[in-house]
Amino acid sequence: MDCCGGGNVLLYSCSGAADVGCIADRVTRILSKEKVGRMTCLAGVGARLSGFIASAQGADRNIVIDGCPVACAHKGLEAIGVTPEVYNLSNYGCKKGSTPVNDELVEEIALRIKNDIVNYKPVGVVISEGSEGCSCGGNC
């Protein structure tokens, strides 16, 4: 649990029923375990539970891993007024209904998405030195 409202990165997976939904879920769990961000429940957002909505609205980055071009996780966040950073497995060579779920593929995609997340630079946003962190002067 991070405090002070700085450096908060939340991860959402579509976790859908198809093979790519399963891969998206497993990839997101790896990213969460590796502390790229913290995985939270897309279902909570879909159910419009206030804690999940407020957390998404207060996070510095909301990252979604969608399995297919239907993009449920992306649209779920947009439906509550949050524009997420989107990684869709269809852009990583996965095709819904014909992608075998195995450890090797999951780990490979997790690594590729992790690199993309780390190298992500938002368009039109100037990040100045010292702008990161929670600004509480090390008191939290």
Binding site: D2, L10, G51, F52, A54, S55, A59
Partner: peptide, 12 residues
Amino acid sequence: QIMNYGVMITPA
């Protein structure tokens, strides 16, 4: 208890 509210970041 905090997470039972669905809250992932604090303060809330």
